[in-house]
Structures are given as structure tokens and as C-alpha cells.
Simulated assay, not measured.
Amino acid sequence: MARTTEGDGKPVPQRLLAAATRLFADQGYDRTSVQEIVEAAGVTKGALYHYFGSKEDLLHEVYGRVLRLQQERLDAFADADAPVERRLRDAAADVVVTTLENLDDTKIFFRSMHQLSPEKDKQVRAERRRYHERFRALVEEGQRTGVFTTATPADLVVDYHFGSVHHLASWYRPDGSLTPQQVADHLADMLLRSLRR
């Protein structure tokens, strides 16, 4: 049985994910070999296959861990005891911050998503759809209760915001003039302005 830690004491799955993320971001999923990943992680191929099964499983997990984090946080915001405008703003800002804090993961996913098997692609799309539906439910709640305008359909509002989020990887630079929180505040405020009555 593979050991759960090797080398520097970090759990092997964590080390494999960190190495794969760095290599996929630097040289692309296609051009990264399993051998390069295990060498960078300081583990054996057996350890990789024990925890992930394949290079594709690593790619799936790179994005999956960010999506799970974002879903947990969205659920917490959506379930909070606060006005719907506050809950939506917090959720809208959070998805920007968590995307920017995991920018390599996001870049890898959008560059390499088409390389997932049909089964894994379907799974990821279902997870993303669940996230978007929960987010849309906040918009619809505000529209139903008269807090937000109904002039723009909720689906378009959600697509507008997530279009901006998905585009972040193409222009945001960590050494630029805006912090992740500042970008998040601007985008969340724009979203709320588009919904005000």
C-alpha cells in the first residue's frame, strides 16, 4: 500500500496535485508526462496511480477541488441569515476571489477541459450547473421579492457575471494594480447595479 506522505511530509495526493498544477500551467496538459509529475512530486508512479488512477484524473481534480471550495462557500452565503442583496454580493465577490487565488487551476481547466473523457466532462458540467443554479436562485429570490428588477432575465444576469469570471485568466496579473478583492468588489458591484430597481 502506498504511504500517505513522502519526502517533505506533505500528503502524497497534495504533492501530486501541486506538481501537476505547476507543470500543466507551465507547459500544458498534453506536453506533461506522468514521469515528469512524479519526479516533481518526489513520489513513484505507483503512488500516482494509487491515488488518482491516471493523468486525466489529476486534471479533473485540479479543477474539481476549486469547484468544491466555491460550492461550499456559495452554499454558506446562500444559506446565511442576511438580506438577499448582501448574500448575492458576497457570493458574486467570492467566486472572483477564489478564482483569482487559484488562477493556475482555472487556466488549466479552460485550456484543457476538452481533453476530459465524455464521462468526466459530463460530471464537471453537472457540478458547474449545480453551482450556477444555486447562484441563479439568489437572483431569482431577489426578483421574486421585489428587491431586484425583473427587466433582465436571471439566466442572462448569471451568464454576464460568470462570463466576466471565466475571462479573468486571460487578463489578470497577480503583480498588477488590483488585488483579487478589489477586482471582486468591482465585479460584484457591477452585478448589483445591473439588478437594482
Rank of each mutant, 00 (worst) to 15 (best):
R89Q: 14
H60D: 10
L103C: 08
T32I: 04
D94E: 11
A76C: 04
D121R: 11
G46E: 14
K122W: 07
H114F: 11
H60S: 05
A184R: 03
T5Y: 10
L16R: 06
E140C: 02
G42L: 08
S33G: 07
D75Q: 11
D159C: 01
R196K: 11
H50V: 00
V158M: 11
E6I: 06
T179D: 06
A20Y: 13
E133Q: 14
T106F: 05
V12I: 10
V12F: 08
R197F: 02
Y131K: 04
Y51L: 02
G9N: 13
V183K: 00
V96P: 15
K55G: 07
R73N: 05
P11L: 08
E6G: 05
Q182D: 10
R3S: 11
R73Q: 10
L59F: 10
V95Y: 11
D185V: 02
Q70F: 01
H60V: 01
R22W: 13
V147C: 05
P180G: 01
L156G: 13
S33A: 03
P11N: 06
T152M: 12
L23P: 06
F77I: 01
R22P: 10
T32H: 11
A92R: 08
L67A: 15
Q143C: 04
A82L: 14
D155I: 00
H161A: 06
V43Y: 14
E72W: 04
P83A: 07
A82E: 15
R68N: 07
L16S: 13
V96A: 14
Q70E: 15
Q181T: 04
H114R: 09
L58W: 14
A184E: 08
E85H: 09
K107H: 12
P153E: 08
A78G: 02
L116F: 10
K55H: 09
G176Q: 07
R129D: 14
S33Y: 04
G146Q: 12
R3N: 10
E39D: 15
P118N: 04
R173L: 09
A184T: 05
F110C: 02
R144C: 01
V157D: 15
I37M: 14
K55A: 05
V34H: 01
L48Y: 12
E133G: 04
L69D: 13
V157Y: 14
E119K: 03
T44Y: 10
W171C: 03
E39S: 12
V157M: 11
M113F: 14
